[in-house]
Measured scan of single mutants.
Amino acid sequence: DEFHFHWNGRDIRVRGDSEELRRLIEAIKRGELSEEEIERAIEILER
């Protein structure tokens, strides 16, 4: 699976399928994380 979302003017695409990944992306979409937490998560996910 590939998750695709927009954040902070960026087009983010992440491959993978796990419950943890889904929860993280939902939290990002709901605005539950700080900008710094989101940046760090995206860096890890894009590897």
Rank of each mutant, 00 (worst) to 15 (best):
1 D>Y: 07
1 D>N: 12
1 D>I: 10
1 D>E: 14
1 D>R: 04
1 D>S: 07
1 D>C: 07
1 D>M: 09
1 D>L: 09
2 E>P: 04
2 E>W: 12
2 E>Y: 10
2 E>C: 08
2 E>K: 03
3 F>Q: 02
3 F>V: 04
3 F>L: 06
3 F>S: 02
3 F>G: 02
4 H>P: 01
4 H>V: 14
4 H>G: 03
4 H>M: 10
4 H>R: 06
4 H>C: 08
4 H>A: 04
4 H>K: 04
5 F>P: 00
5 F>Y: 04
5 F>E: 00
5 F>H: 00
5 F>W: 05
5 F>N: 00
5 F>R: 00
6 H>F: 09
6 H>M: 06
6 H>N: 06
6 H>G: 01
6 H>R: 06
6 H>P: 01
7 W>E: 00
7 W>D: 00
7 W>F: 05
7 W>C: 00
8 N>G: 05
8 N>I: 02
8 N>S: 01
8 N>T: 00
8 N>Y: 02
9 G>Y: 01
9 G>E: 02
9 G>A: 01
9 G>T: 01
9 G>F: 01
9 G>I: 00
9 G>C: 08
9 G>K: 02
10 R>H: 03
10 R>M: 03
10 R>Q: 03
10 R>T: 02
10 R>I: 03
10 R>D: 01
11 D>F: 15
11 D>H: 14
11 D>Y: 15
11 D>W: 15
11 D>C: 14
11 D>T: 15
11 D>R: 15
11 D>M: 15
12 I>Y: 15
12 I>G: 00
12 I>S: 00
12 I>R: 01
12 I>D: 00
12 I>C: 03
12 I>E: 00
12 I>W: 15
12 I>H: 03
12 I>F: 15
13 R>L: 14
13 R>Q: 09
13 R>G: 04
13 R>Y: 15
13 R>P: 07
13 R>D: 06
13 R>A: 09
14 V>G: 04
14 V>T: 03
14 V>S: 02
14 V>H: 02
14 V>D: 01
14 V>Y: 15
14 V>Q: 01
15 R>N: 14
15 R>H: 12
15 R>V: 13
15 R>S: 12
15 R>F: 12
15 R>Q: 11
15 R>G: 08
16 G>Q: 06
16 G>R: 04
16 G>T: 09
16 G>F: 05
16 G>D: 04
17 D>Y: 07
17 D>I: 06
17 D>C: 04
17 D>V: 06
17 D>H: 08
17 D>M: 06
17 D>K: 06
17 D>F: 08
18 S>K: 06
18 S>Q: 08
18 S>Y: 06
18 S>W: 07
18 S>R: 08
18 S>F: 07
19 E>Y: 15
19 E>W: 15
19 E>H: 12
19 E>N: 10
20 E>R: 07
20 E>I: 12
20 E>L: 14
21 L>K: 15
21 L>D: 10
21 L>P: 02
21 L>N: 15
21 L>F: 15
21 L>Y: 12
21 L>W: 14
21 L>C: 03
21 L>T: 11
22 R>H: 07
22 R>T: 06
22 R>M: 12
22 R>F: 14
22 R>G: 05
22 R>D: 03
23 R>G: 08
23 R>D: 07
23 R>C: 06
23 R>N: 08
23 R>H: 08
23 R>S: 10
24 L>E: 00
24 L>M: 08
24 L>S: 01
24 L>R: 01
24 L>G: 00
24 L>F: 11
24 L>C: 03
24 L>N: 01
25 I>G: 03
25 I>M: 13
25 I>Q: 04
25 I>T: 05
26 E>G: 13
27 A>S: 11
27 A>P: 00
27 A>K: 15
27 A>T: 11
28 I>T: 02
28 I>K: 01
28 I>R: 01
28 I>H: 02
28 I>F: 12
28 I>D: 01
28 I>V: 05
29 K>T: 10
29 K>C: 04
29 K>H: 10
29 K>L: 10
29 K>Q: 10
29 K>G: 09
30 R>V: 06
30 R>F: 12
30 R>T: 09
30 R>H: 10
30 R>E: 08
30 R>D: 07
31 G>F: 11
31 G>Q: 07
31 G>C: 05
31 G>R: 05
31 G>P: 02
31 G>S: 04
31 G>W: 09
32 E>C: 06
32 E>N: 09
32 E>D: 12
33 L>G: 02
33 L>R: 03
33 L>D: 02
33 L>C: 04
33 L>T: 03
33 L>N: 03
34 S>V: 06
34 S>W: 03
34 S>M: 09
34 S>I: 05
34 S>D: 09
34 S>F: 05
34 S>R: 07
34 S>Q: 08
35 E>F: 14
35 E>W: 06
35 E>T: 13
36 E>H: 12
36 E>L: 13
36 E>F: 13
36 E>N: 10
36 E>Q: 13
36 E>S: 12
36 E>W: 15
36 E>Y: 14
37 E>I: 04
37 E>K: 05
37 E>G: 09
37 E>H: 05
37 E>M: 08
37 E>Y: 05
37 E>D: 11
38 I>D: 00
38 I>V: 11
38 I>Q: 03
38 I>T: 10
38 I>H: 02
38 I>N: 02
38 I>A: 04
38 I>W: 04
38 I>K: 01
39 E>D: 11
39 E>W: 13
39 E>M: 10
39 E>R: 07
39 E>C: 04
39 E>Q: 07
39 E>Y: 13
40 R>P: 03
40 R>F: 08
40 R>T: 08
40 R>L: 10
40 R>K: 13
41 A>P: 00
41 A>D: 03
41 A>K: 07
41 A>S: 06
41 A>Y: 07
41 A>L: 09
41 A>G: 04
41 A>E: 05
41 A>N: 05
42 I>S: 01
42 I>C: 02
42 I>A: 02
42 I>T: 02
42 I>E: 01
42 I>H: 02
42 I>G: 01
43 E>A: 13
43 E>C: 15
43 E>I: 09
43 E>Q: 12
44 I>V: 12
44 I>A: 10
44 I>F: 14
44 I>G: 06
44 I>D: 09
44 I>C: 06
44 I>N: 08
45 L>R: 01
45 L>I: 09
45 L>W: 10
45 L>D: 01
45 L>P: 01
45 L>Q: 02
45 L>K: 01
45 L>C: 01
45 L>T: 02
45 L>A: 03
46 E>K: 06
46 E>Q: 09
46 E>W: 08
47 R>D: 14
47 R>L: 12
47 R>K: 11
47 R>F: 10
47 R>E: 12
47 R>T: 14
47 R>G: 14
